[in-house]
Structure formats: structure tokens, C-alpha cells
Design a protein around this nucleic acid. Sequence first.
DNA 1: GCTAACTATCTATGGGGATAGATAGCTGAC
DNA 2: GTCAGCTATCTATCCCCATAGATAGTTAGC
Lengths: 200, 200
Amino acid sequence: MSLRHALLALLTVERMTGYDLSKAFQASVSHVWHAPDSQIYPELRRMEADGLLVGTEVPWGPRGMKREYHVTEAGRGAFRAWMNEPLSYTRERDPAHLKAAYLEWAEPDAARAQLRAHIANFEEQRTEWLEKVREIDTGTSTMLEKRLAHAPASEHAAIRAYKRYTYEGLIARAEHEIQWAERGLTLIDELNRTDAPPPA
Amino acid sequence: MSLRHALLALLTVERMTGYDLSKAFQASVSHVWHAPDSQIYPELRRMEADGLLVGTEVPWGPRGMKREYHVTEAGRGAFRAWMNEPLSYTRERDPAHLKAAYLEWAEPDAARAQLRAHIANFEEQRTEWLEKVREIDTGTSTMLEKRLAHAPASEHAAIRAYKRYTYEGLIARAEHEIQWAERGLTLIDELNRTDAPPPA
DNA sequence: GCTAACTATCTATGGGGATAGATAGCTGAC
DNA sequence: GTCAGCTATCTATCCCCATAGATAGTTAGC
């Protein structure tokens, strides 16, 4: 149930519509959290019912209407409470490593293709996160700059540092996954080099 | 839907009951995959209905009965097909990193406690996986030795190597998470050292 | 003025997993 | 002989999430 907390996190910056939030999920926190709009809209309704948010209808063009949400004191409190709570760690469930353990069942080429896909996937993530770090450093992250504008100057360093710390961790993890898959490619080659013994 | 494939993977070694499988999930592949028995039993029934398994009632004690499943050729084929298929990568959903990005909202002590819990969690995993690698190397992994006994000698090296490769990757990942959390602890200390400026 | 692309919201369905709990037989220790 | 702890299986509920699709208004360019 941290969709709720991810939404609260974004709404502590400024009032937004469900649509804004679904866009923000794609841009700002994509690959840390993701949710389709079909989950966001009902969750916002529930959060309003629980008193965490207040939604107000605002005109949009001549005839259209949209619903903007802002966080209440209760919502802010709930987010702070969650941030102070310990996290419960769920058991891993990792298809990539599950498959890796049984790679002898796959054709060597299929195995290679999968490891290459693993690499491609994490290289893409790595690129995105490097870009986020760049945005943090250059002050071109819209959400972060808005957040800083509403926060006392004494907290700016911490806010920036924690964001950077998070993305750096994700980058390092992506690099680990890339290296792991590359070792796997080497291993497949070694195991399929039947015609020649390893060099002495 | 890889619970099905995880079950197939285990059942390619030998016939087992739902209970055996639920135990094997805790022992052999815990932390790569996990499932409670309440998911395993119905899934086994479905797999039997789909022709992947055949279940036979065998007596257990004077009056008891248990149901042992073994993989059919279709089941073996389905597993091999899955192993040759590319994996679809789902977007990340990572509560620990989500929270890390907003650590300024937490009390410093609460933040420290969470990072310490992160470390403890991955140290525990690391210990378990190191033990698995040891079992692979010393030939004391029951499942692996059974698997090897049913496989041609020419494949033994590959089977052992892929298992080792998988666990080594998980160990490295756990170590990465530990290092990341340790850097976080340092960061919290730095940001809360208000009374003294950083040394020149 | 029309069309394409974007903004905005909602409903429906199904799968999978977490959690809880019910039932029943077996085994070994005291 | 009985009780604790293990083996064995099944059902039910709730929540979350993924996917698909329906609807409608807006904006900007041609």
C-alpha cells in the first residue's frame, strides 16, 4: 500500500490533478514507482474519503472541469508517520535470477539473448537515472526545484542530498546487474567452448 | 505467472507433494522465489488440469494419503519453452528507495533505524546465499545433488556453474545494498552535524 | 472548420499474492 | 496414552495491480 505514500510524496510539493500525478509517475519517480491512472484516480478518491486530501473542482477551458487535490494536515501527518515507520521487507521474487539458476535448460543463444536483454534493460534505467542526477545538480528538475522553493533554505542541502543518494544507489544497482549479466555471457561462452580446452 | 515455472523447476528434479514443494520453497529457492502453500496446492491442481503434471495418491501411514506430482513431457516442454523465452521486465517498485528519496521527512533516528534494518535484511540474505554457495561447492545441497544424479555427466559442470553464478549475483547485490545503506548512515550523520563544520 | 494529439476521468475484469484459518492424520517423547 | 509438533491439504477473503476500454473536453495547426 505505498501507492498512497508515493502519491502523498508528490502532493506535498503542490496541488495536482490525477492526470498530473500519472504524468509525474512517468517522469519524476518512474522506475522507483509506477502506477497507471486507473489505480491513481480511485486511490485519490479513497484518500480524500480518509481525510488525507481535499479535492476541488476547477474549470478547465470553457466547459471542462478537472479535480485538483491538495494534502491536508492529516495527510502530511500520515506521510511523516510512514516515513518514521520501519519498512517491512517482503521476500524476493526475481524471475531473472530464477531463470539464471536453470540456464542449462535454455539454448545457448536464447540464454545469451536473455542476458543481453537484462543488460539493455538496466542500461536504459542507468541512463535515465544518470539524467536525474544531472537534473538535480543543474537545478533543472521541475519537481525538485518546486519542492525546494517551499522548504526553508536550511533544509535545501538535505533534500538535494537524499535525492542524489537515492538515484546514485539505483545507478550502482543497475551497474551491478549489467556486470552480473556480462559475467553470465562469458560463462555461457566458456561452457560452450567444447572444441578447445581452456588455455593453460 | 512464474510460480508455475518455479514449481516446474523443482519438479524436474523429482516427484514431490505440495508440502514438499512448500518446504523446498523455504529452503532451496527461498529469497529467489517464495510462495505459501495456499498458492501452491491450487496451482498444482491447475497444472495437472493443463497436463503439465500428473498427480498420484500415495498412502501415508495407516490411514493418511498424500498426493505426489511428477512432470509430464508436456510439462518439461513448457519449462524448456519458458527458459527459451525472453523475460518481460516490469517497472521497478521499490519502497526502500522511494523512502530514501524523502528521508528529510523522517527523524534522523528513524532514518538511521531504517537503514540499519536495510543492512540487517541484506546481511541475512547474504549469509544464506553464502551458505548456498558453500553447499554447491561441498556437494551438500540435496536438491542439486539429486539433479546431478539424473543428468548426464557432461552437463554437471554447467548445472553447478549456473547455480553458483546465480547465487554469486545475489550475494553481490546484497553487498551493494549493504554498502548503499552504510553510505546513507554516513550521509545522515553529515547532514545532522550542525554544531561543527566539515573539516578542511 | 477539422483533425490530431493531448488532457482528463472512470469502469470493468481478471490474476496473483498475502493472510488467516479450518481440517486431519502422523510421529515421537514423556 | 496422550500431547506437542510435524506432515498434509484446502478454502476464503482482501488487496493490489495490470490491462483494456469507454468517454469527453481542449488545444493547436493546417
